[in-house]
Design a protein around this nucleic acid. Structure first.
Lengths: 108, 108
DNA sequence: TTCCCATATTGCAATATTACAATATGTTTT
DNA sequence: AAAACATATTGTAATATTGCAATATGGGAA
């Protein structure tokens, strides 16, 4: 059906899955890594950096924005995008939480 | 087009994005958390645990298996699924790598 | 104002994903 | 062998995602 069933899952799981799905695309993951590394965060760089057309990049940026992973601020003619550290930390902590349960568990 | 462009992205990014995309579904994320927590890892539990039909769960399991996040071993009538710790660690390390770049960076 | 420049939005067309019923497969029990 | 159980596969319908051309928007420069 293409539609993802959400009834029966916790809010936390649904939100985290949504974030991971957004991260699960080469362009969007690249954008996150680029934003994490680069000192500036002007969007125009991305058009040159990524092998995708400008409208496509714009769409990916808006998805990242939708789930709160990045935030954009208008700065004159450009838009300054950067990672939202709080949201990013949430994701990292969730991963570390799963890892913790995993550690003290005997494998099959 | 529905097809994800991969030309121009590194192998690492493509693989990591693929893994995250697979994790980015409530059922599959729940399966990972369930496997991380539960002492046993019989698949049949999942059919009772998740609000989805058996064939659907089976498909999700095979996606998780495809990207190497879990491994299954036939154990008589049942199949023993468990998390592949090495793959999981790879994902965690990738997240921590991004976080590291993020830390020593001034925000907009 | 008019012309650029950076970015967003819209409107497709192609492909991918999701869910489940029905069915198949393989194993254990009787 | 037959029945029962656990899981996988197939087929199908509905919906989501992706990419880009064309276009819109909105700011700064001339």
């Amino acid at each position: 059906m293409g539609i993802t069933k959400t009834i029966g899952f916790s809010e936390t799981i649904i939100e985290m899955a949504d974030i991971l799905k957004v991260l699960g695309h080469p362009a969007r993951l690249s954008i996150m890594e680029y934003l994490a590394k680069s000192p500036s965060c002007i969007c125009n760089d991305l058009v040159e950096e990524l092998p995708l057309a400008q409208p496509t990049i714009s769409r990916h940026l808006s998805e990242l924005k939708r789930v709160g992973l990045i935030q954009g601020e208008i700065s004159g003619k450009n838009i300054c995008y950067c990672i939202h550290p709080k949201k990013w930390t949430e994701v990292l902590l969730h991963f570390e939480m799963i890892t913790t349960s995993l550690v003290d568990k005997k494998q099959c």
